[in-house]
Design a protein around this nucleic acid. Structure first.
Lengths: 154, 154
DNA sequence: TGGGATTATATGGGCGTCAATGGGAATAAA
DNA sequence: TTTATTCCCATTGACGCCCATATAATCCCA
């Protein structure tokens, strides 16, 4: 599985380290097994992250934008200046940067949420709320979901 | 047969393992023989599951959605974060995750119900009720069903 | 076609490996 | 030196892998 999927709650130790979930590690491209990219989510007060490979791909796309567009400016500012490359140690752990910890209000535990090509890291209580809400909204909009699922049967 | 069909009741052992029915195993695509995907059903308090292949197809659909839409966020949260990739052991068994067990109220036995492209896992008592109900409803609506089938054959 | 023989499936249990976590020593930075 | 970061080793519990058995299904041949 080359996607970030599932949800895991891991502890943060005295040194500030937390295990990056094993199956997330397996989802990292072979050439970048020990490095992840972290940044502030644009959607909510949470951390988002992805592989180095994905950042490279995004960079390519930005390069193809009109160089003088506002979008280009916004993207490069908010993405490149804010991302934090982070190394995993030999046990697959990393230290959550202080700024991101504050931003996401994470203290002693962190919930890792798989989102396919990227992942989120949230304070566990918030994570539960978020998942509950998403699920509720999705059930309400069952029709659009079943449309997506049915297309797959073709 | 590449579909999940028929119904089976299997025991859960001390370690929490349960056999994935043999003919369900045969319904898995050759490249993903030992892995299934489990998740909470959106319809009722039961477990649903499918092959990795099917999830990959769904992932593609989601990735084609507008990256910043609310739908994208809900879909990827509810689907990517809630699915649980699960490996079958060499005897074709797997462990039902604790959260899913609670959600579906499964304890010592599990009923596997084939649903074509996916399958359900229910607590046996509930499974019986469900099947009874489905059958009753179907008989009641036989007429409209046959109308639907005829319509589709055109 | 009957019935023993073979195979497959569901189930049980032992054991080694790995993931998550903790902590000390070594190294680097301030 | 003091603080922070990285590397290495230890522990524990969960999980996967292997072997074993029993019941059920299938086969095969006389």
């Amino acid at each position: 599985m080359e996607l970030f999927v599932s949800t895991f709650v891991n502890k943060i130790d005295k040194k500030g380290r937390v295990s990056f979930p094993s199956i997330f590690r397996n989802a990292l491209p072979k050439d970048y097994k020990n490095e992840i990219i972290l940044y502030k989510s644009l959607r909510q007060n949470s951390i988002e992250g992805c592989s180095v490979k994905r950042i490279n791909e995004i960079a390519d796309r930005i390069n193809n934008l009109d160089l003088f567009s506002e979008d280009e400016e916004d993207f490069s500012t908010s993405i490149f200046s804010e991302i934090i490359p982070t190394n995993l140690d030999s046990e697959g752990r990393f230290v959550i940067p202080e700024t991101l910890k504050k931003f996401s209000q994470i203290t002693t535990e962190a919930t890792f949420i798989g989102q396919g090509y990227y992942f989120q890291i949230l304070e566990p209580q918030r994570a539960k709320q978020k998942q509950k809400l998403s699920r509720t909204r999705l059930v309400e909009r069952k029709k659009s979901l079943s449309a997506i699922l049915k297309e797959n049967n073709k």
